[in-house]
Design a protein around this nucleic acid. Sequence first.
DNA 1: GTTACTGCAAACGATTTGCAAGTGG
DNA 2: CCACTTGCAAATCGTTTGCAGTAAC
Lengths: 186, 186
Amino acid sequence: MSLVSLKSCNFVAGFMKTNDMKESVITAAERILDSFLEANNHRKTPERYAILKAVYNISGHFSLEQLGEKLSEEYKFPVSRATLYNTLNLFMELRLVIRHRFQGRTMYEACYDNNSHCHQICTICGSVTELKAPLIVRAIDATHFKRFRKDGFTLYVYGVCSACQGKLARKKKITTKTSITNNEQR
Amino acid sequence: MSLVSLKSCNFVAGFMKTNDMKESVITAAERILDSFLEANNHRKTPERYAILKAVYNISGHFSLEQLGEKLSEEYKFPVSRATLYNTLNLFMELRLVIRHRFQGRTMYEACYDNNSHCHQICTICGSVTELKAPLIVRAIDATHFKRFRKDGFTLYVYGVCSACQGKLARKKKITTKTSITNNEQR
DNA sequence: GTTACTGCAAACGATTTGCAAGTGG
DNA sequence: CCACTTGCAAATCGTTTGCAGTAAC
């Protein structure tokens, strides 16, 4: 339950911009991976560390494909699809990575226990924007959950982005109250 | 932007318990479907209304399978898998239904524009609990989003439920900080 | 009668699994 | 040397699509 100290540490990490600080996040993540692998007699394979590094050097969301490409092209360290899945699942258990499902597309994101994710999603075009909402974060952090140890949260705010609002205003042929059309939004 | 009135109407719906009130929600949902189908020259097929009724008579989350079973067994109105998908997609566009992805499992939920969903998810056993969190809801409602028309939101709070906390305490073989084990949680 | 919808089956994409070969401890 | 991992390919799962028949308008 040393969550408090870690939380605040990650909170600082949220504002990190220099490479030094980025490195320290990666190092911290590697330590978590290390200790888990050691404790469970799992192997410290180069793949796992390469993937971790790649993951933490992508800013924002990424797909499994993108991760694979980055590994082969940028790191010259191609890894099979199956291993990517295995490893990402492992990272998810360790809370080093979070998985999102945006309109059917699966996206991952490095999180190092910074599990406060607010996303703004346009239901028309599917665009996803990261969101800073300190008021909401504070409300969630302040909320006590009965018989439940809260580790993190994800908030998805659905709506229509300004670009699509414009498009809708121009079309406007459908008369449902929400003015959500039958545009593609799978 | 008649969202306000609808919101409050749905808020009342949240506390509805009697069949009368449930019926009124279904009727309202049917009206939305009606007007959409009429406006777009789409057909008022019995399937669509049967599915809508079934959806609104399930309380809480349901899978496509469960919906199909309810329709064939309870309503004696079997519907093909493809039609279920088509129709649920239509309902999602109309905001009569919301889709969740819980640990890889897809679940749907009737919502009739009551798009304020708070869920508490155990990352060990995968159990999902609906959550009443007025404080959080208020904070989100109060938040203004730049260049974005907010229609609804979904909040997932991740953590460990009391049952799994007990199990973890008994096992306790892994020494990572979060004490998240390698238990199944895909 | 025209056009949209349904159901079926095939296709598809994403993810998992089985197995043989490889490698870390 | 043993067990865990990897990579490949096959299998599986959830979802979509093409097409022929059917039904709404």
